[in-house]
Structure formats: C-alpha cells, structure tokens
Amino acid sequence: MYQFNHGYELLELTKKFNLPISQIVVLAEQEKTGEGLDTIFQKMRNNLKVMREAINKGLNEDLKSVSGLSGGDAKKLYKRIIIGNTLSCETMAKAAASALAVTEVNASMGKIVAAPTAGSSGVIPGALITVARKFGKSDDDMTRALFTATGIGIIIAKNATLSGAEGGCQAEVGSASAMAAAALVELMGGTPEQCLTAASFAIMNLLGLVCDPVAGLVEIPCEKRNALGALNAMICADFAIAGMDSVIPFDEVVEAMYKVGKTIPCALRETAEGGLAKTPTGIRLKKKIFEKVERGD
C-alpha cells in the first residue's frame, strides 16, 4: 500500500494519505519488514546518535587516517569558526566542518553510518545536524528528516546507483546531497514537492562528478567533496523552499545521473586509474602509503 519505486509515486502517496515523505517511508518499511513503528524509529534514532558522536569526535580530536593521508582538517576549520573568522557564514562553515569531521572519523577507522555509503557518510549529518541546531529542531524532527532522506535514497538506488564504482562521485556524494536536501526541506516545513525539487537541484549541480580517490582510499578528494555536498544540499533546500522550480522532474534527473554514470570512463569510477589519483603526486602518495603501513605478522 505504501511502496514506491519512483518520485512521482512517492508524491502520489503523500497526497493520498496526506502525510509527509518521512511518514510514508516509515509505513512502507513497516509493511515490508513487519517490524513495529517504534522499533523502526528507534533504529533511525540510533543512526542519528552515531552521526552526532562522529561529528563531535572529528571536530575535537586529532585524528589521523590509517594511511596517514588525511585527518585533523575538521578541527582546523572548527577553530576558525570559534574565533568567528570564516568567510562563509557560521552555519555554512559549521556544516562543512561537520561533514569533514564524519569523513575523517571514517578514514581513521571510527564509527559512522554509511549514509548512503561510507565514502559519502559526512554529507547528511553535516547538513542536517547543523541546520537543526540553528533552528532549534528536536531529535525527533531530525530522525523524521532522516527517513525523508532515505526515501530519496531508495528511489535513487532502485532507478540508478549509489555506488562510486558504478556511477562516479555524482552517485555517492551527489545522491547523499540530494537525500540531505530533501531532508532539510521537510525539517523546515516544506512540502513533499519541494523535497523532490531540492533533491533534483542537488543532483543537477553535481552531475558528472567523477570518482578519483588518491591511492583508492576514501580520503583525497572525498572528504572535501562531502563538505561540498552538505553545502550544496543547504543551497538547494533554500532554492526549493523559495519556490524555485528545477524544471527537470526528479525522476528524469535520476535517470540522467544514471546515464551519465554509464558514460563516465572506468578510470574515473573508483578504480584510482584516473583524475587526481593519476597525478604525479597522487601516484607518489600511493607508492609511499603501500610501502609504509606495517604488516600484521
């Protein structure tokens, strides 16, 4: 009764039952798994808790990734925010720092929520938790918004892909950004249509982004692209709430993303055979990392 495969079906359900996207997603999950509404909600609440802990850890601790390639940048940016010296406004800078924080926790073998992937795990927490704090939203509000985000993610997974190996970075950070944008719209009281519009804008802005991680590790440039994805989500949520129209409907944007992903050469889809990974510095770093890290015997 509550199942959906496409954006237009999700919208029809929200109209038919007069419910927000988050509620339709929860009801569809209950219908599918037979689990209680409370259990499902509590599980998502736990995801929120893990996200928040990762942000706090990344902003305050001196983290270093397993490879030694990255770490500590979220803390650097956070220091600038505290003294009020960032060029972007405090909310934007905080969202960027929080997204960075989560990805640095991920790279240093800390605990995160794959949202939707480990490589894009910073986008949703960075945008959602920062905006929610600014506007005094509760944990329940944020938890509901995570279901909204998931609804968008389910549609993308069904009709396109969430994997960088299949669709490039646009499929990972792009999808996470679309999920976050829709979540922000519902959090701020926007309509289901506006949620999908925001998600469309988010993917449109990042369409074609390639996946070219240095040494094949989810660090350079992935961590900073997570920060970009979080900020993109905020801008796109603002676009939609202001009443702007994405012109191309969400389902068509998702299809376009999938088709673009198919035409991205394999070298630019997580294989570390192109882009930044194949720069002289990228190649040198790769060599250094795999000689350095100690063996376990």
Binding site: M44, N47, G110
Partner: peptide
C-alpha cells in the same frame, strides 16, 4: 531490487569502506 530503510541509511560501521 527491494531496499530496506537501513540498507540505505546504514549500516553503522567502522570505516573506512563498507
């Protein structure tokens, strides 16, 4: 393919790669 909510928003895991 069918996806559960927690296939998309999850799993909770130790990084860096699922």
């Amino acid at each position: 393919r069918e996806y559960s909510v927690f296939d998309i928003m999850g799993p909770v895991m130790i990084g860096p790669s699922s």
